[in-house]
Amino acid sequence: MTRSLENRVVIISGAAMGQGAAHAKLLSEAGASVLLGDINQALGESVAQEIRDSGGKAQFVKLDVSKADDWERAVKAAHDAFGPVTGLVNNAGISVKGTVLDCEDEVWQKVISVNQTGVFYGMRTVAPAIIAAGGGAIVNTSSTLGFHASPVAFAYQATKGAVRTMTKSAALALGVHGVRVNAVFPGLVDTPFIDGHRNNTGLDDSIGRTPLGRIAQPSEISQAVLFLLSDDASYVNGSELVVDGGMTAGSLGSLTPITAKDAS
């Protein structure tokens, strides 16, 4: 089944690269008009142009998600370019390593401002526009670290846990207005976000704990986002869609995969 987002207008934060760019491309292919927001103007403009060159409808706006005024400008830009806004993907996020003992004030405030306050501003600003348009959907990006802890990602996991409960609270408040709010929980994704962890044993160990034995491609997360924005998810609200290859399902322990020969 090909899901359709025809006549939908969707704002995507953090859309200049990685997951956000993949989301923008797939949603455009599904028929949506997409407004790409990011602080990286050069990359964001490039992705928007690529979408337009492929026949899609896309515009870029410079968006610092930690600034409420930027969100107001983004909603206006989307409306002016395409019409009433019907969807939001809160994708922007940053991560800085650190434990509870060495997380400095500046790092804590920065991660909170982007990953948590940015999601808050996005929902608070865009939801009224979606309500005015007659309803629609919001997808927030959490993480598998919204479920379980890591000693070296204290600030990051604090925000992703917050996004989990913020999503549920917003789903309760906005559902009565025809706005569904859900969250995706990606595991390891092959984007620049993990560049600093490539070629180290920690990443290899994480892949080894994933039943599917690999990291995800950005498009695989985008498919989950597309589903949650589409009418196929018309009764899905306040949900947690985990896309992690089974990493959070449990422990593999000493399980040895069954080969085709063993199964015959």
Rank of each mutant, 00 (worst) to 15 (best):
K261Q: 11
R180I: 07
R198H: 04
P128D: 08
T86N: 12
V176Q: 15
S169K: 07
A15H: 08
H197D: 14
F82M: 06
V9R: 08
A15M: 09
A78L: 07
W108N: 10
A16E: 03
D64V: 03
M1Q: 10
A58F: 02
L226S: 07
G196Q: 15
L241W: 04
A127V: 09
T159P: 05
I131W: 00
A171E: 08
H177N: 15
Q217G: 03
T167E: 01
A77V: 06
D64H: 07
S150V: 02
A133H: 02
N115D: 15
A129E: 06
K97S: 13
R209A: 12
L241G: 04
S28Y: 03
Q109D: 15
A77K: 14
I258P: 00
M1Y: 07
G87F: 06
Y156N: 03
H23G: 01
K67R: 15
H79C: 01
V85G: 04
D190E: 14
R198Y: 08
T167Y: 04
A170V: 02
L36I: 03
G37N: 03
D64P: 05
L252H: 05
A58V: 05
I194A: 11
A78H: 09
D244H: 10
A32L: 04
G245T: 14
L27C: 07
N199Y: 12
N40F: 00
M123F: 05
A74M: 12
R52A: 02
S13K: 07
I138D: 08
L63I: 13
D262M: 11
H197W: 13
P218C: 10
S234H: 04
V126S: 11
I138C: 09
E6K: 10
V152R: 13
D80N: 11
K76A: 14
S264R: 10
A170W: 07
F154R: 00
E240V: 01
A249V: 12
V61E: 07
L88T: 03
D69W: 06
S169N: 14
N199H: 14
N140L: 09
D204N: 13
A42E: 03
D64L: 06
V176T: 15
I51K: 01
A133Y: 00
S230E: 05
P211F: 11
I112E: 05
S230T: 06
Q109R: 14
F82L: 06
G98W: 10
A153C: 08
V34Y: 02
G196N: 15
V10W: 09
V189W: 09
I112C: 02
A16T: 09
A183G: 10
W71K: 08
V163L: 00
S113K: 04
V85W: 03
A21V: 12
